[in-house]
Design a protein around this nucleic acid. Structure first.
Lengths: 147, 147
DNA sequence: CACATGATCTGGAATGATTCCAGTGATGGA
DNA sequence: TCCATCACTGGAATCATTCCAGATCATGTG
């Protein structure tokens, strides 16, 4: 039987399918940004502009900002903003994972929650706040910066 | 016996004593900023400039930025930077506590680590990073914004 | 208590990330 | 295929923050 590659591999849907699945228009900038992010996890806007331009030739900075905003709003990418660093984006969404940021070079790596089912997400006193999410950022030194 | 108030109440040292204790020069801007922060926990720079000016009359914005940088570097205040908000400062330092930020109005409140001795600070895989600190930010709605 | 020294404050300009805006161009349903 | 709408372009503006050079002040010494 001749199943299309798209149907055969449902594990990693194409950028086009992801966009269609959310009812978003499929544009060159969007698919290129999603692919660039697949290849460069935790990339910042500047990096993504460069990578997208390598593929598409010419893309405005604002287009990339707009694409990332739309993708973030629709849950296709996740935005993190380490203190003192420009925003970074990743395609790993939906699961509760955290990040470690290098104080030296700003490198970011994923960190899964240590203990079973996210006990750190249950604070003691909430001061009447209705808590929705918890975000953990580890700070340290990456292997290279640690020497 | 005639002990001075300073010696009697070691619980909350004056701004002057805090500065002297770190070998820092005692200036009007610094004591005013420390006092302003005592009265306004989690205040941002803008707010602190206003409060300091109410007491001192005229202070440059840059002086406040400089004061806050020096105080932060010497561990007298703690700086937090919630994503999408300007930096905020607090005098509660040295203990491992976290923050909840309101998605509506940006209000910040302190949150003590829920479970015993900070298990959330022990990540599972560190990717070779040498982890120094962990920072937890809860996001939700404050009582007012939750309606 | 006056002085010298070096840190601190002032005012102004610059930076970097991000957003806003008006106009042109592309996408996808009719 | 045609059109309404949404997306992209280019330029300017915003916001928080930092940089710079010069004037001022805090502090240890004589």
């Amino acid at each position: 039987m001749t199943t299309t590659p798209d149907h055969a591999a449902a594990a990693t849907p194409s950028a086009t399918d992801l966009l269609r699945g959310r009812g978003l228009r499929v544009t060159a900038a969007r698919t290129a940004a999603l692919d660039a992010l697949e290849a460069n996890p935790h990339a910042d806007t500047d990096t993504l502009v460069r990578v997208v331009r390598e593929r598409l030739g010419t893309v405005s900075v604002q287009a990339v900002y707009d694409v990332l905003r739309v993708l973030t709003e629709h849950g296709l990418v996740h935005r993190i903003e380490p203190a003192g660093h420009p925003a970074r984006y990743e395609r790993r969404v939906g699961d509760n994972h955290h990040h470690v940021v290098c104080r030296g070079c700003g490198a970011v790596a994923d960190v899964d929650c240590a203990v079973g089912h996210a006990p750190c997400l249950v604070p003691s006193a909430t001061h009447g706040f209705r808590i929705e999410t918890a975000e953990v950022t580890y700070w340290g030194l990456c292997p290279r910066c640690a020497g």
